[in-house]
Design a protein around this nucleic acid. Structure first.
Lengths: 197, 197, 197, 197
DNA sequence: AATGAATGAGCCTTCATTCAT
DNA sequence: AATGAATGAAGGCTCATTCAT
């Protein structure tokens, strides 16, 4: 419709695909629907992408949290640990929100689509490694106790990921909102002993 | 095939449906496949269930972790907190493993199927409440510090849930196995301060 | 439509497929057209056949000239060679006419469809072998000169096959009709020396 | 790509069309594939040809065996019959090999495409007439017996055509190779009596 | 002259569902 | 209770063709 160059067109299709898949699932995001949403006909989409899977693969690969995380870790290196974790957590949740479609598809399709599954695994591995080495540096520096950093990373991301999924993607109304208080509270919980000293 | 009464047949269909959906996703678990797996023809399934959705809804509602959790909490009330958490966590992971199919479907379909979504939300709420009141009693008893028990519950379940999903459902090879050591390590991480005292 | 048992239904679909393919080619014989010709909807055809290729493969394999040829050779063993050849040639042309669809598809699709190609090759080989051994027996019996029986077989079938294709399938009006006179004339041409003695 | 004048471009497209159609069939030889093979885009082809059919029609009409045959017959007029037939047969097989694409398409498409069918018929008629009059002259000259020259021509071309199709286009491995021995053997078979004198 | 984006009809195939037997 | 033939809409994808640039 509007005047767009080729690459912008591709982006438009990818965005529409993500949005529809988030709403209806991968199967529900039909090429026809994607085309309609973009005001073109099915053939056009195949002019830009080999097939449906390529369209999605490319869209999903596009931007991952890893890029953001690298930058964040660079910025927080010198800050106190609770501030550092706060910033990463906030960035993570913000990313999940911004790329909400991506997340939905990776989770729901990753469970039974090999291609998407390994894409998801890749992303998780990269993030895990970055964060683990941050933890390890903090342990070496004596800021953190000698905890099992591998598990710690899983706990950190796992918590915020699940919280986001449950609260914002599945609208579980009994759960607290994912606001700053929640993030700060969560980090406090991690850093402090649960046990009464 | 073998002689089964009506209710047993229903169970058989539900079990087959779960298994196939776990493997191929909800869309991939076609009525024909379910029928074949049970050695009957498509028509038969429609004798027992109104339609595909009813079959799945009923299968998913069947048994949730809540039943197990109630029993577990009764048993651990008097035990020290780390042992109590260990038993709940172990029971939770065991349940996820045993009902692996159910979990897959709730997660992947819950994201864009309203019916399944609220089913999932229900289950989560019940578990959250049970566990939260357990935490609250422990806080009152002075065994736990006055932590935010709502967040703590989310962190507890969220961690093991994510760990299970990533490791055992998505085969992320870079993650540690979900064995006793992992569970104990995770609980230690929760109960102790991450920060160097 | 009319009451037919399963196997008759299959036959009906195969017959329709052959007829349409003969008229429009393999690609032109669409499942929809086949279904329409049979008064059913597309889904029905897929109830009987895995896919389009299976439908055609089965239809093509169904009856080949080999069966007819075996019987014919049994009958002509004792007859004089020109009468024997006349009967085989007549039977061959009759078969081509009767199974006109089959031939069209094997020839036209066999050239670029591996599956159909090897099907055709199989048929040709079987016929060639049967006929060659007949020739060899006649040579041994002294009724035929010690000719190269392999080439002779190719010449025999090749001639009638081409004649049929050109005249009756491609309506080449400048060619003589494929009647008894033509067959007898052809055999005379084979058996007698072309060269002026 | 390279600098070609209009007519050379047309030839290039036609050649590519033939080659692809030979490999994949008429339907399989898509405009896009043809364009790709020539390093241009689809639009370009439509600058040179009205539509797909025109492209093929023109390509097929291009050069036929007739031209070659005329020349050959001129050359063999004075030679002994077996040598003459050898040269024509060799030329014919050589032509089929060289124009392999053309042949495939005429045969396979000619069966259900009226346009291509009559094109093929034209070619066959011309060749038949040329060869028949050669035979008739040889009969008049007493070199050949008073055979039915119309059938003889069909037998001559039909044999080599089928042999080529079966052996070199359909890779029938049980058949002898189409070499000089085969051609000479075939001609001997034609010229000599099959019957034991 | 050449491009390549866009079209839209049509292809093969799948699948939940119905229903006469 | 069970069958399985039949439906028909829908899905992914292809392709000859057009046309503004």
């Amino acid at each position: 419709m509007t005047d767009l160059c080729g690459s912008e067109r591709r982006d438009m299709f990818k965005a529409a695909a993500m949005e529809l898949a988030c709403q209806y699932g991968y199967e529900g995001a039909t090429i026809k629907r994607i085309a309609q949403k973009c005001g073109v006909t099915v053939g056009t989409i195949y002019h830009y992408f080999e097939n449906k899977e390529e369209l999605f693969r490319e869209a999903l690969r596009e931007r991952t949290f890893t890029t953001v995380l690298k930058k964040l870790i660079g910025e927080i290196e010198e800050k106190p640990i609770d501030e550092g974790l706060f910033q990463v957590a906030t960035g993570f949740v913000g990313f999940l929100r911004e790329r909400r479609n991506l997340i939905s598809i990776l989770v729901s399709e990753g469970l039974h689509n090999g291609e998407f599954g390994s894409l998801f695994a890749d992303i998780v591995r990269q993030n895990t490694e970055l964060m683990k080495s941050y933890f390890d540096r903090k342990i070496a520096a004596g800021e953190l106790a000698p905890i099992d950093s591998r598990i710690a990373v899983q706990m950190f991301f796992g918590h915020f990921f699940t919280a986001y999924l449950h609260k914002e993607r599945m609208q579980m109304e009994h759960l607290p909102p994912l606001d700053e208080a929640f993030v700060r509270g969560s980090i406090a919980l991690l850093l402090h002993s649960w046990r009464q000293p």
